[in-house]
């Protein structure tokens, strides 16, 4: 059972191996903190939607499963967004752009389709947690690399628990490599990360 959790971190890492959810990956990893923020929001929504889809999987006719899954995911994300805006406005501001993006993140639908619709509730919850964690780890490291090279700073924090703080890593005279913050820098970083992962797996 524990394998359902750990597989998402390296062996079936959603970004590096499955290559799912690349759009938000490239869009938000301009700072390390943004990576963590998006990751945490995804862990939450992915786990919850996996649980709900696993619960209703036997009542869903296979021909219309995709629209039903999307309905479940979109409903869930909208509820999270509304509740956050009303009750935790500061968190809602920090995660503001990330939350609506989660609906179109294909990891969520991908895991619903490939895993939660075929497995029990506990396994699906662990799958969601593991995939979300793997997603978050990659986002964090991509954000770190892109922010240090692209802006010369490093912004660390954790949603709800620790407010983000910006450290000036490269010092004042550093002229930032803007390319790294723009989409091409995202693709380059992602490619290098995938390459490193393959190197590591081959040598292990």
């Amino acid at each position: 059972m524990i394998k359902e959790f750990t597989k998402g971190i390296l062996k079936e890492n959603p970004i590096l191996v499955l290559a799912l959810g690349l759009c938000p990956t490239l869009a938000v990893t301009t700072t390390a903190y943004n990576g963590i923020g998006m990751g945490v929001a995804v862990i939450f929504v992915l786990t919850m939607s996996n649980i709900i889809i696993s619960l209703i999987r036997k009542t869903v006719p296979s021909k219309i499963r995709i629209p039903i899954f999307i309905t479940v995911i979109a409903t869930f994300v909208t509820i999270v967004k509304l509740v956050m805006a009303g009750y935790t406005p500061s968190l809602s501001k920090q995660l503001g752009i990330f939350v609506p993006l989660i609906v179109v993140n294909c990891i969520i639908l991908g895991r619903a389709e490939a895993f939660a619709s075929k497995n029990g509730v506990l396994a699906s919850a662990l799958d969601g947690l593991g995939m979300g964690t793997g997603f978050t780890i990659v986002l964090f490291f991509m954000g770190t690399v892109r922010e240090i090279i692209g802006s010369g700073t490093l912004t660390l924090g954790f949603p709800i628990l620790i407010d983000p703080h910006t450290l000036n890593i490269m010092g004042k005279g550093y002229s930032s490599a803007l390319l790294m913050i723009l989409p091409p820098g995202g693709f380059i970083t992602l490619g290098i990360f995938m390459w490193l992962k393959q190197l590591w797996v081959k040598n292990a």
Partner: peptide
Amino acid sequence: FILMAYAGIAGVLLGWVYTKTKPKI
């Protein structure tokens, strides 16, 4: 009809959450 039922449940649920959170927001 099955799809409509799911969408209907989702709609009602969202409507309820919306009216509950609107004043707060």
